[in-house]
Design a protein around this nucleic acid. Structure first.
Length: 137
DNA sequence: GCCAACGTTGGC
DNA sequence: GCCAACGTTGGC
């Protein structure tokens, strides 16, 4: 099963809001980048993704689960992009900050490190395991 | 708030 | 089809 990482600015959509959305979850819209779109399209129901707070916080704060696969984003006028639905699965006991991720040599190839601007990205099994451990899981 | 990195747009 | 200009993202 594949793993992912999804970024959000906490001032726009935060982990707290994701948790409040509950088991029903919410749609993850606003992706307007083809690489990110490819990732969204590759996601399968039941797969898991890190929830990363960008900008103000810069840390992985929890895990979300994909509950609905790729479908068109009604807010995209071009009709090219789409979104998935996610629900909060598990919070990190403590956030795994970007600085810690960058300081770990085994994570040097993480997309978060090599292509910081990509908003939805794949995570390898090993990276998943290490970052979960950082988060106290 | 600044700026580097990247993606997109548009003129040629 | 190339590339300069511009806009956006996100780390610092």
């Amino acid at each position: 099963m594949a793993h992912w990482l999804m970024k959000s600015e906490p001032s726009v959509w935060s982990w707290t809001q994701q948790v409040e959305a509950g088991a029903k979850g919410t749609f993850w819209n606003g992706v307007r980048n083809h690489q990110a779109k490819q990732c969204l399209m590759a996601m399968k129901k039941g797969e898991t993704a890190f929830f990363y707070h960008s900008n103000e916080e810069r840390a992985v704060v929890g895990i979300v689960e994909i509950i609905k696969t790729f479908y068109p984003d009604p807010t995209d006028e071009s009709g090219k992009f789409g979104m998935v639905d996610v629900r909060a699965k598990k919070p990190f006991k403590k956030p795994a900050p970007l600085t810690a991720i960058k300081g770990e040599t085994a994570l040097a190839k993480m997309v978060l490190v090599t292509n910081s601007r990509l908003s939805v990205q794949p995570v390898t099994d090993e990276e998943w395991r290490i970052v979960c451990a950082m988060g106290g899981l």
